[in-house]
Amino acid sequence: MKQASIPLEEYMGSGHLACQGCGATQAMRFALKALGPQTALVIPACCWAVIDGSFPHSCVQQPIYHTAFETAAVVASGLKAGLEMRGDSETTVMAWAGDGGTFDIGLQALSGAAERNEDIIYVCYDNEAYMNTGIQRSSSTPYGAWTTTTPVTNYKRRPKKNMIDIMAAHEIPYIATASTAYPHDIIRKMAKAKEIRGTKYIQIFAPCPTGWKLAPELSVKMARLGVTSKVYPMLEITENGQKLEVWKDFEPSSVREYMKPQGRFRHLTDEELDGIEREVEANWQRLLAKEKMLGSIPGLA
């Protein structure tokens, strides 16, 4: 057989409690392959607080500190500080939270940690709703989506919060989006983050078949089509928020192809889909304009 295309070491084992086809689980598996054994995790309330298993078991080999919903970033900061105090500057500390715990309730703690430039990796696995408690809307839920708190008669009519811009405003050394459809890319970005000192924010697009009313086998396909339809752009922000690189080297696909298999968008009419398509394209153009604009400003160095 050929050489393996991603590291062979497994740190996330079988028997866990995630649903069939769970993207959040794939994301964790790839991230741990990149970070290796000398890593400590901080996980607030979210699906992943359940997935790893029930005390005293865990499907993850690295230690996990389970913590309160709003505290991932601050607990990770504290854990890192504690390790430093004991002379351990090698261990990577990773906060691993859902979008509810990041975009909403955990935002304050994250903003504080980022402002202080704490030496942590903060990963938000973004499944675009509060899944663990039964699919409630979050500020990451996209425009048009059904959730139990945005029923089809009153589907979500606000756009997804632009978390990347919020993080960029903190001028931290590394920000990236990733998608479970691109394991090599997740691994590359995690490995890169590991080598950078300061706050690293990585937002991984992680489909949730259960919450999206999606056939589980289409999990990776959605993670891919989300990217190729430009709904969920892949980007990296470096130089403390001053340099933006957007991934464009893909075969473009349509927004409809992405939305169609997902039950959470089934109620949308043709006109509403047209509107979403226009919005996706406008956001994409804005993003490219920003990339160009930032590129045209000479750096300080």
Partner: peptide
Amino acid sequence: FCPDTAIKRNKDDYEIDLDYCKGCLVCVE
């Protein structure tokens, strides 16, 4: 892509561990 780490990568082939495979069919897709 197996979310359940249920596929073993052997020297010359792969093997599905049916004790843990949840049947999501991501591998097939």
